[in-house]
């Protein structure tokens, strides 16, 4: 995980979810790029973030795209975030004894009879899922993100407050991590739109 660096976090709010990551792509201690996108849209209300080895991030993005497209064609509907989380899990577990070195984070809004419900999940590199009710973290700054999120997060934050909370958590977390940082991107998903903001961060 320390080979390329990078961190991802997702948080639940009131009728919204947020997912964010840094933009660093490094080669151990050497910074290579500050525009490495590691969060990808799965549907228009589900996003996946992949922290870990850069080459596996790119490979898995394509694999997930393929499997989600097959699902959409067969089922003739968008995949639900929870279903996608299980798809991620089984894809990773197929490589139980020679895994992809990634820690995925999934954030989205589930369809329910009464509208939509926030959903977040994270998995380890062999696909063990963690369905948290509050927040999930992944990557080289995970311990810092846990400490910050535990202190800053509170239940039922609106989209704007959730954006501020996840941004402060990520920015302050990656500033204490040598392998993460170099800018950040935040997506806030609400029922009728997704707001994506690119944040300026410390460049050291």
């Amino acid at each position: 995980m320390e080979y390329n660096g990078g961190s991802v976090i997702a948080m639940v709010g009131k009728d919204c979810v947020a997912i964010a990551s840094d933009l660093r792509f490094g080669n151990q201690a050497l910074g290579i790029a500050s525009n490495f996108q590691r969060i990808f849209p799965v549907t228009d209300r589900t996003y996946v973030g992949l922290a870990g080895l850069g080459t596996d991030v790119t490979t898995l993005r394509e694999r997930f795209r393929y499997r989600v497209n097959m699902y959409t064609i067969k089922e003739e509907r968008d995949i639900e975030p929870q279903t996608f989380a299980h798809l991620v899990s089984s894809t990773l577990y197929e490589h139980r004894f020679g895994p992809y070195f990634v820690e995925p984070v999934i954030a989205g809004l589930e369809n329910t009879s009464s509208g939509s419900k926030p959903f977040i999940a994270a998995a380890d590199l062999i696909g063990c899922l963690n369905f948290a009710k509050d927040f999930v973290v992944a990557g080289t700054a995970s311990s810092k993100l846990y400490g910050l999120a535990e202190g800053l997060w509170e239940p039922d934050l609106g989209p704007e407050d959730l954006f501020e909370t996840i941004s402060q958590t990520l920015l302050n977390g990656v500033d204490r991590d040598a392998f993460s940082g170099w800018g950040a991107v935040v997506h806030v998903i609400t029922k009728d739109r997704v707001v994506t903001r690119t944040l300026k961060g410390r460049m050291d």
Partner: peptide, 18 residues
């Protein structure tokens, strides 16, 4: 737990990133 607490203090005491 230094790694959990120090970035929180950076934010709340030194007002980093604010």
């Amino acid at each position: 737990a230094q790694s959990l607490l120090q970035p929180f203090l950076d934010n709340q005491i030194y007002f980093k990133n604010q």
